[in-house]
Each structure stands twice: as structure tokens, then as C-alpha cells.
Design a protein around this nucleic acid. Structure first.
Length: 572
DNA sequence: TTGGATT
């Protein structure tokens, strides 16, 4: 059946050391998972092959309990971690009885396999790329846990999988390698999605049935039909009613065409109909809704409260033209959203800020890092981890307590430096709640480094220059107004003391210091951005080479010698 | 052309 022949090594490999060298990788794990085995592979085949690398403690080939047929995977337990590590480097993707083995560190916790964390799907691979080459191509972006090209009868099926140990590595690889041309084929790289998830995504694109809520009591099915028919042929309208025949405030409108349904969502979601603002969105099937709720619940169970908090983002400086849908569109590029809300006044006009909740904190962090400072409808977005109201009040009160000058500061008639205008004079909790501020504290999120800047600057790190320029302009205008003097301050020594403790002074120092803080902190957006840029730059070079060179050069490029200078055992 | 694992 398989085109390739048995490929046991012809002679035992030379062992560079019988014992792990001092200071070698800290892990004690010496167990490997060996998958995708030929069904004919036996325990003795595995022992024979793996013991060429180092002493083996045990091998277990998993078999069906009743038929005793091989389940095509095994555990190989070495005596030493070092030899396990070496076997992984030398034998992964090599052929045993015609099948390339997929070797991984033994990972008993199925979570990463089940969730698809860091997992990519790659398709449109040229037939020349096998698992080892795919591994080489992706390995520059991080640590690969598992990688394979799907094969049938020894021939590539043109697609494969690469799972990294972090989402960050996977995202870097995706951005860098998607659309790269190899052997005249343009790679397609995406996040791995289970079939059910893809079907659901497809369904989301092709829906015809709409869920309509927030209906006023007097809204009739006829009125709804009238409104929705403006966008295309409506096949049914139903408002849900209670036992007394009273509207339950929600219903369904089904269109004949999915395009019309989408247009209706765009136009009528948020529209004022009857005496209320409608919510209009894709109707979910009952099972789908139940599944979603169940999944959300399960996902929440896998995260700590602190991480869950970090799935919700606060988005400020929204244009009044941005509604829930536009916000959703802008943020859904970073992952699956579970809710989007632009906060509005009673008259439906946007308050200029909103909240975006992702299904997981990783996607929320990606959005925070990639979308903070981006432009939407002409305005520069400010994105931060959302805080609960009570946390925000506490943070702000602490903030003001630290920086507020004595009461006399507010009562005097100084010509105050314009930097001070950032601060309202009376931080009562009512006032704190009445308007959004530019900054929400990140201290609750465990993965974000705490710096002075993180806690106290009201300025967005990667917009720092723009902010500084704006403030300089404000200050210049201020100077002009005051005949070129910095406000004509007449300070006695007491007042100078006050000024030094004033909020504007502290903020200015804090934000200036933040430039260093934001770019040197271990997990800061600055570093992440730099890494990504580096990776992209490297890839551009590689892509350039791939485009220019012929296939033999490409093979060399994709198939560098592995850790021990040995590319594989035969097979090909 | 979208995966996976019982020592």
C-alpha cells in the first residue's frame, strides 16, 4: 500500500554523550508520544529503532482492548531526558514501515489538543513539501509541539497542521507565511478550526433568519414586516407572545435571501421602531445557542477570574458614527467575540466608548496590542482591559488621592499650566461614573507587566508622539494667549511646592518616563510588536529567496540539517 | 484541502 519502504537505520547512531551534559534542558520528562504509526508496527520495531538513540525504560504500543489491533500510537519512555530529546530531534518525521512518525513530548493533559491553542492549518502545499520540510519552514517562529503533512499512500494531500507552544508564535507564523509562494503555490495558513466550528462560521455568513429584540409592546408583526420588507422578500415574521397573548418583546424575521437579511441587520439593528431601539441579529438555532452557552461556560471554567476579566476590553474615542456592528467588524479580526456594545445616551447617540468581549483572554490581548491606536471612522481608538465600575472608581480615587494637590490649589486664581486641564477638579464617584476616562488600569491582568506607565499614564504608549505634539500645540496656543510667557505664573515658594505636587506635573513626568517603561517591559506591546516586525522582516528575505531561486535551492532552504546534523533516515 | 493520546 505505502509507496515508501521500511526505513530503519542501517546502523546505530553514534551517541555524542552517554549522559546528558551538565546544564542540559531542565525538564525531567523522558517520555515521548509517537503517533501516526503504520498499523503493522510492533513494540519490538519501536524498541529496535528508539534504542539506537539511548537506553529505553519501556515502550507501550496502544492497542484496541478487544481486537488487540494497534491504535497507531505508542509511548516510548527513555531512561534519560537527554536521549528522549535527541530521539525527538532525530526521528521525528522519519519513516517506519512506510509511514512518517509524528513524535511529540508526552502531554497527558489533552487541553491544548482539544482547544487548538497555537494550532495552524496549512493548505495548498506543493507535493514537494513533506512534514520535515513543513517543520523547518515554521520552526523559525517558535517551538513546534506537533507538525505534519497529511499523506495518503505515501503522497502528500497538500495540507497539514503546525501546532506551536504559544498563540504568539502561531500568530507570527500565520502573518508571515500566509500567501507565501513556494514552488508556484501560494500557501494558505489559518488558525485551525474544527469542522463544526467551520460549519458554524459558514452558517454565520449565510443566514436568512433574524432575531429581533427590544420590541415595544405595540409593535405588531405587520409593522415589522413593513420595515423589513424594504430590504427584500420576507418569508415569515413572528413575534413571541406569552399565555395572555402579550408580546414578549422579541421575535424572528426570515428572509428568502441571505444578502437581504444581512442588509436588514446593517440597517435596522439599532433603528428606532415603535418606541424603542431594535436589536437585530442573526437568529441562532436553539441547539446552537445551547451549545454556545455551554461552551462559554466550559471556557470560563478553564480560566481564572483574573483572566476572564481580561477578555473584556474597553474601547474609547469612538466616532459617533461607529455602532455595534462597525465595532464588531473592526475587532472580529482578532478572534471570536462574545459581545460588543457601544454605549449610547437615551436618544441613541453614541457616548463615544464601548466594550468588546472576546471568548478568551489571548484574543483580547491580541486585539489590545494590534488595535490600540488604530483608526476607525477617522478617530484613533484607545483600547484597554475593561474594569468593573467599582474597581475603576477605586483605582481613580487612589490615583487622585496620590496626585491631588491640597484644597487651596483649586481655590486660587493662578493662571494654570494647560497640562493641568486633563484633570477634573472634583473626583467624586458620581463624576467618575458620568464619563469615561482615557485609561483603565491593567493591574488586574497577570500577563501584563506593571510599570509606572501602566498604572498612571493617561497616554496611549504607541501614540505617545502624537499626544506630545498635541499637548505642545495646546501649550503654544496658551503661550500666545499669554503674550509668550508660560502663563505669567506668580508663584511664591509655597505655591511652587503645590505646583510640584500637582496632577499635571506628575502626569507629564509619568508619561515621559513611560516611553522607557513601555518598550523595555518583558511582555509589553512594544516588545511584541518588535518581535513581529523582526519575524516579518526575516520572512520577507526568505520569501524573496523562495521566489527567486529554483526548487533545488528551496529544498536546501527548507531542509536544513537537524540538531545532530542528520536530516532523516532514508525513506525517500 | 481542517488532527490528535488508555502507559
Amino acid at each position: 500500500m505505502a509507496a515508501k519502504t521500511v526505513s530503519l537505520p542501517l546502523q546505530p547512531l553514534p551517541l555524542p554523550h552517554s549522559q546528558p551534559p551538565p546544564g542540559f534542558v531542565n525538564s525531567h520528562c523522558a517520555s515521548l508520544y509517537v503517533g501516526d504509526l503504520d498499523p503493522q508496527v510492533t513494540e519490538s520495531d519501536l524498541v529496535k529503532l528508539f534504542s539506537t538513540v539511548g537506553p529505553i525504560a519501556s515502550v507501550r504500543l496502544c492497542r484496541d482492548i478487544s481486537s488487540q489491533k494497534s491504535l497507531r500510537y505508542a509511548y516510548v519512555n527513555f531512561v534519560h531526558h537527554y536521549h528522549a530529546s535527541m530521539a525527538l530531534a532525530r526521528l521525528n518525521h522519519t519513516y517506519l514501515k512506510g509511514f512518517p512518525m509524528r513524535i511529540m513530548w508526552c502531554q497527558r493533559d489533552p487541553l491544548s489538543r482539544k482547544t487548538g491553542y497555537g494550532n495552524l492549518f496549512v493548505k495548498n502545499l506543493p507535493p514537494s513539501i513533506n512534514s520535515l520540510q513543513l517543520h523547518s519552514l515554521f520552526s523559525r517562529f517558535g517551538t513546534i509541539l506537533s507538525c505534519k503533512v497529511a499523506e495518503e499512500n505515501g503522497k502528500s494531500k497538500g495540507f497539514g497542521f503546525v501546532q506551536f507552544d504559544t498563540e504568539e508564535s502561531a500568530t507570527s507564523a500565520l502573518y508571515a507565511l500566509h500567501d507565501t509562494v513556494i514552488d508556484e503555490k501560494k500557501l494558505y495558513v489559518s488558525k485551525f478550526m474544527k469542522k463544526s466550528e467551520r460549519m458554524a462560521a459558514q452558517e454565520e455568513l449565510n443566514f436568512t433568519n433574524l432575531y429581533v429584540k427590544n420590541l415595544s409592546e405595540d409593535t405588531t408583526e405587520e409593522l415589522l414586516r413593513d420595515q423589513f420588507s424594504k430590504f427584500g422578500k420576507v418569508s415569515s415574521v413572528a413575534i413571541m407572545k406569552d399565555n395572555q397573548g402579550k408580546s414578549r418583546g422579541f421575535g424572528f424575521v426570515n428572509f428568502e435571501s441571505s444578502e437581504d437579511a444581512k442588509n436588514a441587520v446593517g440597517a435596522l439593528n439599532g433603528a428606532f421602531i415603535g418606541s424603542k431601539y431594535l436589536f437585530v441579529g442573526r437568529a441562532q438555532r436553539k441547539t446552537e445557542r445551547e451549545e454556545l452557552l455551554k461552551r462559554e461556560y466550559m471556557e470560563r471554567c478553564n480560566y481564572t477570574n483574573e483572566q476572564l476579566k481580561a477578555s473584556n476590553l474597553f474601547v474609547n474615542n469612538l466616532s459617533t458614527s461607529v455602532d455595534d456592528n462597525k465595532l464588531k467588524k473592526h475587532f472580529s479580526t482578532c478572534g471570536q467575540l462574545t459581545s460588543v456594545k457601544v454605549m449610547c445616551l437615551d436618544n441613541g447617540i453614541s457616548k463615544g466608548f464601548g466594550f468588546v468581549r472576546f471568548s478568551n483572554p489571548e484574543d483580547a490581548m491580541k486585539a489590545l496590542h494590534t488595535l490600540n491606536g488604530t483608526t476607525l471612522e477617522g478617530k484613533t481608538l484607545y483600547v484597554a482591559i475593561a474594569q468593573r465600575k467599582e474597581d475603576r472608581i477605586r483605582t481613580l480615587q487612589n490615583h487622585y488621592a496620590q496626585f491631588s494637590p491640597p484644597e487651596t490649589f483649586y481655590n486660587c486664581n493662578w493662571n494654570v499650566h494647560p497640562f493641568f486641564y486633563h484633570f477634573p477638579p472634583c473626583p467624586s464617584s458620581n463624576q467618575l461614573l458620568s464619563q469615561p476616562i482615557m485609561y483603565q488600569d491593567c493591574q488586574q491582568y497577570p500577563l501584563v507587566t506593571q510599570t509606572y506607565h501602566d498604572r498612571f499614564s493617561i497616554f496611549v504608549p504607541n501614540r505617545q508622539k502624537e499626544w506630545d505634539n498635541t499637548r505642545d500645540q495646546v501649550y503654544q496656543q496658551h503661550l500666545l494667549k499669554n503674550n509668550g510667557t508660560p502663563g505669567g505664573l506668580k508663584l511664591d515658594s509655597r505655591k511652587k511646592g503645590n505646583k510640584r505636587s500637582g496632577p499635571g506635573e506628575s502626569t507629564y513626568t509619568g508619561s515621559a518616563g513611560a516611553k522607557g517603561g513601555a518598550h523595555t517591559a518583558g511582555t509589553s506591546p512594544g516588545k511584541s510588536r518588535r518581535n513581529l516586525e523582526k519575524v516579518l522582516a526575516e520572512n520577507l528575505q526568505i520569501t524573496g529567496m523562495l521566489l527567486e531561486n529554483n526548487s533545488s535551492d528551496i529544498t536546501k532552504l527548507l531542509n536544513p540539517p537537524n540538531a545532530l546534523g542528520c536530516s532523516s533516515f532514508g525513506g525517500k
